[in-house]
Amino acid sequence: MEMREKILTFIEKNSRANLKDLAVILGVDEAAVANEMAAMEEEHIICGYHTLIDWEKTGVEKVNALIEVRVTPQRGRGFDAVAERVYNYPEVNAVYLISGGYDLLVTLEGKTLREVAQFVSDKLSTLEAVMSTKTNFILKKYKDHGTVIKESKKDERMLVTP
């Protein structure tokens, strides 16, 4: 594996590792890791460092929805123009172009059901290119970003074995 792939594979799951530890663990020079990381941030290969949170446990109310959007592509710009219109709204978490029964998959986060519904009816549906929307509310998150959302697993191995 080349160094970039090694770094990315590791930090994708451990974004908090400091440079020194990262260099030790990957068996490469610390300065080289720092340079690669900086370069990859510059090139927008590394697009951000996020934290996976189970908001449900905090008591803070959040509502998440997946919205299936059918749109009319624009001459010369395809789906990009309408995607851009959609992703510029701060309430929008993610926008994907999808193959299959609809065109854009939009994920949204709001404080209440009403807030999300309002965004869809007032903002999303009124865009000229949008033909139809279908809003799916997320009831429970089981797994996100490859991580199972529940109590951390206990080590059930015997404490000392040969």
């Binding site: 080590d155 191995r157 015997m158 404490l159 000392v160 074995t161 040969p162």
Partner: peptide
């Protein structure tokens, strides 16, 4: 009996010890 066994008994008595004594994958 295996010397490991003896040590296992001691470790099991200790509450919230961190073990680095396991011979199997995590």
């Amino acid at each position: 009996p295996s010397g490991i066994r003896k040590f296992f008994d001691i470790v099991s008595e200790m509450k919230d010890a961190i073990s680095l004594g396991v011979g199997e994958p995590d």
